[in-house]
Every structure is written in structure tokens, then in C-alpha cells.
């Protein structure tokens, strides 16, 4: 019987907190369970102070478990889990892999520099902490879901880009009629980083002329599975006005639902969204451009074709099977490389 790799997974928030990192870990551990045995370490609260505390208490906890578990490697997920992951790796002399799901504060600092009118304050401690966790600590290997992250300074040379995936079969199972009213759908966390204030501004602008255009806002995690698929499929356009992204799952989901998309030019979005092919790309923090894109989509007779093109892209290129295979390759390289 093939010997399974034993992996300790550290992540500083877990369901019901619903984010890209949590879905990424859930989907990968499911698909890698044939080759790996995972033990998951995460705090039981989403309170930021308790998450910091967890980043310390998980160290002795994992050291105790090591005597029976004999982990081959540690896989920590951004952000805070990078610190205990590195400390444990040093103590136990086992490799640590660190996955970056986005570099919000680093990206935001770039955006505010190129867009001084943008009134967003970034706490210096948050910037320093994220910078240190992402590019200060030297992990044996890093994984980033988005390639935009590679453009930041001092990024670890041992790094692989492993995009998120989506399971199109979950979407194919459900047929749903479109709402009569032209409907935009936004799915995301209630977080200023998602740029919701610019979306609200854009809606005010377009409602001057087209009050019938409707916006459905869904907070991630609030509804999931079939209900979420139904919401996607009954809408006409997906809209993601974020100020920063890594490799957004909701964009992949929207395409899996064959929806045309309007997204901001952040993270890996510009690499995936092609104007007139599978969606619309607009500058971040620009409600007027967002409003113009909504009106362009609203009047586009070939709108559905953009959604189909997006579906074909995710079906071919962004699957969890591909992500799992690439992750397993990193695990094997890191273990053989270190021992």
C-alpha cells in the first residue's frame, strides 16, 4: 500500500467564516486524500485577537501531536498561520509550504499610490505584518493562487502559481430561468476591499436612466450550494468591483454559471477577463467606468455568448483537480528537496 504523505494544515480561520482560503483548503484536501493524510489546525473563532492567540498556542499543540503524527510537512495558509508554520518547521526540521490567497494590503498601497483621490487608510501595522508574513519570512516553498503577487518586491524565489478551481458539474446539474428584470449579481464578503461603495455609486448613476436594472448582493457563506447556483443562474451579469483580489472564486463560479462578468482590473482578473470575449474589465475605484460597463452589457445583444466563453475557460483551465495535482507536486519536491 502506497505510503501517504502526512501534512499538517494551518489556517487562521475556518467555516462558517467563508473565504477563498477556506474553500481552497476544503477542495484540495478532499482531492488529495488518496495521496495524503491531513490534520487541520485552525482557531474556533474569527475574532482577530483570538486568531493571534491561536497563532501562538498552535505551536505547542502541534509539537505534542508530532510524536504520534510524524508529519512530513506543514502547509500554512495566509496570513497569520505563516508564523507558527515557520517556527514549527524550524523546531521539527520539516519543510513548510505557505499559500498566499491574496495580498490585499500590498495591492491597496499600490492602488492608493496610483490613485491619490482614493480615500482609504491602511493601518501601518497591518501593512508591516502582511509584508513580513508574505515576503519577510523564508518558507521552503510558497504557492500563490494569483500570479499578480509575483510583481511585489522580495517574493520568495521558490514559488509556484496554483490558481483556484471550480466544479462546473455542480452548476451543470441545475437549470434556472433568468429573472425578467435585468439583474446584476455581486457575491462577496462585506469588506471595503470588495469595493461595494463604488458599486453603489455606479448603481445610482445608471438608475438615472435605467431604474429597472436590479442588483442582487449576496454575502459569501450566507447561501451556498444549490441556492447560490440558482442565484447565479437566474441573474444576467456578475459584477466584482474589488480593489484587490488574488484569484477570485466568485469569478470562477459566475463563469461556471455561464454568466458574463464585469470585474475590476486587479489581481489576476486582467489575465482572465478579455473584453468582448468573456466579460468587461474596468479600472478599480471608478464608479463611472463601472456604470458605463453595466450599460454596455445591458445593451449588448451578444451578452450570453460572453458567459459561454467564460464557462469554457473555467471548464478547461480552472479545476480543483489541476490545483490538487500541482499542489501534490510541490509537496513531493519540497520533501525530497529537504531530506
Amino acid at each position: 500500500m502506497k505510503k501517504k504523505l502526512k501534512v499538517a494544515v494551518l489556517i487562521d480561520a475556518w467555516f462558517p467564516f467563508y473565504g477563498g482560503g477556506q474553500v481552497h483548503v476544503r477542495e484540495l484536501t478532499k482531492r488529495l486524500s488518496v495521496d495524503c493524510r491531513f490534520k487541520l489546525y485552525h482557531p474556533n473563532s474569527t475574532n482577530i485577537l483570538l486568531r493571534f492567540l491561536w497563532a501562538l498556542t498552535v505551536i505547542p499543540q502541534l509539537l505534542r501531536d508530532y510524536s504520534t503524527e510524524r508529519f512530513d510537512l506543514i502547509h500554512a495558509h495566509a496570513y497569520i498561520a505563516g508564523f507558527p508554520g515557520k517556527v514549527i518547521s524550524k523546531i521539527l526540521h520539516i519543510p513548510v509550504v505557505y499559500t498566499v490567497h491574496g495580498s490585499n494590503v500590498l495591492d491597496l498601497r499600490e492602488l492608493t499610490r496610483s490613485n491619490p483621490a482614493l480615500d482609504i487608510k491602511i493601518p501601518i501595522w497591518k501593512y508591516a505584518l502582511e509584508k513580513w508574513l508574505l515576503t519577510g519570512i523564508r518558507y521552503d516553498h510558497q504557492i500563490t493562487v494569483g500570479s499578480k503577487y509575483l510583481t511585489h518586491k522580495n517574493v520568495n524565489k521558490n514559488i509556484s502559481v496554483i490558481p483556484n478551481g471550480v466544479d462546473t458539474k455542480e452548476f451543470d446539474k441545475l437549470k434556472e430561468t433568468k429573472r425578467k428584470q435585468f439583474t446584476l449579481i455581486f457575491v462577496g464578503r462585506d469588506d471595503p476591499m470588495k469595493g461595494i461603495q463604488f458599486l453603489d455609486g455606479a448603481m445610482n448613476l445608471i438608475h438615472q436612466k435605467h431604474p429597472q436594472i436590479k442588483l442582487v448582493k449576496i454575502k459569501t457563506g450566507k447561501i451556498q450550494g444549490r441556492k447560490l447556483v440558482k442565484e447565479y443562474k437566474s441573474s444576467h451579469v456578475f459584477i466584482l468591483p474589488s480593489l484587490s483580489e488574488g484569484h477570485p472564486l466568485t469569478l470562477l463560479e459566475a463563469w461556471a454559471a455561464e454568466l458574463p462578468v464585469i470585474v475590476t482590473s486587479v489581481g489576476d482578473n486582467p489575465k482572465m477577463v478579455k473584453k468582448g470575449v468573456n466579460g468587461y474589465l474596468v479600472p478599480a475605484a471608478d464608479e463611472e467606468s463601472l456604470a458605463q460597463a453595466i450599460l454596455d452589457a445591458y445593451r449588448n445583444p451578444n451578452l450570453e455568448r460572453l458567459g459561454k466563453a467564460g464557462y469554457n475557460l473555467v471548464k478547461k483551465k480552472y479545476t480543483w483537480e489541476k490545483a490538487a495535482k500541482a499542489t501534490l507536486k510541490v509537496y513531493k519536491e519540497v520533501i525530497h528537496g529537504v531530506r
Binding site: L205, Q208, K209, E288, S289, A291, Q292, L295
Partner: peptide
Amino acid sequence: DITYSKRGKKESLKCLK
């Protein structure tokens, strides 16, 4: 597309693009 705004008595139009 054109949008309308009014500040005090001053009305203006602005191109979204």
C-alpha cells in the same frame, strides 16, 4: 453615456467613459 448631477443651483452633465 451621460449622467446628470446638481450641486446647489449648478447643474452639469458628465460622460461616464
